[in-house]
Design a protein around this nucleic acid. Sequence first.
DNA 1: CGCCGATTTGAGAGCTTTCAAACTTTGTGG
DNA 2: CCACAAAGTTTGAAAGCTCTCAAATCGGCG
Lengths: 232, 232
Amino acid sequence: MKPEDCAEVRGIALFSDMAEENFARLMRGAYVQNFPPFTQLFEQGDPADFLHVVVAGGVELYAVWSGRETTMYVAYPVSAFIVAASLKDAPLLMSARTLERSRLVLLPSQDVREVFRIDHDFARAVVDELAHCYRGALKDAKNVRLRNAQERFANYLLKRWRIEGGADTFTLPLEKRRLAAKLSMTPENLSRAIRALQPHGVEVDGAKVRLTDRAALEKLARPTPLIDDPHC
Amino acid sequence: MKPEDCAEVRGIALFSDMAEENFARLMRGAYVQNFPPFTQLFEQGDPADFLHVVVAGGVELYAVWSGRETTMYVAYPVSAFIVAASLKDAPLLMSARTLERSRLVLLPSQDVREVFRIDHDFARAVVDELAHCYRGALKDAKNVRLRNAQERFANYLLKRWRIEGGADTFTLPLEKRRLAAKLSMTPENLSRAIRALQPHGVEVDGAKVRLTDRAALEKLARPTPLIDDPHC
DNA sequence: CGCCGATTTGAGAGCTTTCAAACTTTGTGG
DNA sequence: CCACAAAGTTTGAAAGCTCTCAAATCGGCG
């Protein structure tokens, strides 16, 4: 386990507050591994043997039932996933595959649970993480159930615009097909949403986006912190 | 605060493990209140001043955006809700109204946070609760995104059947319009789902249900613990 | 240049919602 | 006990949104 990877993991909120000694204990049992694109990491129903941290690349978490499949979440660096299942030692509810070449740190769930019991700063960080995940899931459900595809994409653009610091042109950080999955729609529908937003000041050329009339876009998107603010 | 109410609250997993002294501290600042049907308890965006516990009745948690509304969750006795917002002191993501005459215990969030800091058994119970909520939200998302209305209702019937101890006739515990909301569909669609299940051994008369061919129903419903088992 | 994958476009089908109206149930007051 | 009003439920028709399938187009890369 290289020091750089350790530092990456230590940097996220979930691990930054805990005692050095306990962090070291977690790292002792940890694996680091590089995966090619589209590698199956685990399947829903598997036991949660490891807490996963994406250090580089991207991981799609998806669910399957009766031959149908849906993307639930996409994990980007640097963040942890399947925290809840690891802690509760419960079966995984989602399957996971890499979307590109990815570097993961795997922490044995048993170690995580043990350190959780003895390190109260870590325990508090876990609570923060779980609360954040739960509220994220709620916001996601609101996004999907209260907005149609066009509105979801419009709000995504405004979110990106804010993140890019307000520049009126920026670049989509994902392939469109993956963006579509992230927004719970098909690539075809994303394509139609893009076209439908042209009259509202949205110009898309490949991955390049230009917002020429933000007022119009906001009028249509009606963003609200209760859905769109990840920190709220 | 009557001892009966105290006992009710103490009985749920979230509060059963904590030190008596700390529980007493929580109860000291608590309110108990009876609400008539369809009383607004709070609105999304409000500060989470109180952790709520339903002792009797039922509470609908719903979300609103741009004139549209969707039921997110229905809380029944005895259970806590808005745990995450209380702990993080974050704005509420859902609005709440009583569905019937209801009795609630309100615990000031400040007290909850304080006790959370000093009582590690409570903290652990909080983690369990949050993990359970989060996984519940995931299962819900899978249910809605992977199944159509008919399949959701079919699986609901099988879940009730299990809860009722396997009797082939039982009674729906909710009004149909609320059941529809709980299953994320309109009352009209629930009505159609009921009719569509007749050829699969489902007889519904008012609130009375009779399952005459469970094998057929299971063939259609394809229940899986990864969506339908609340404890998994 | 030519292939391969991603994206776009069009057509059609499926599921869900909405609206309106008929029907049933429930509860109240005469 | 009945009549009536109010609310809940069912049914039908129509529209909207999303998905699927197929084909055309665009793009990068060997």
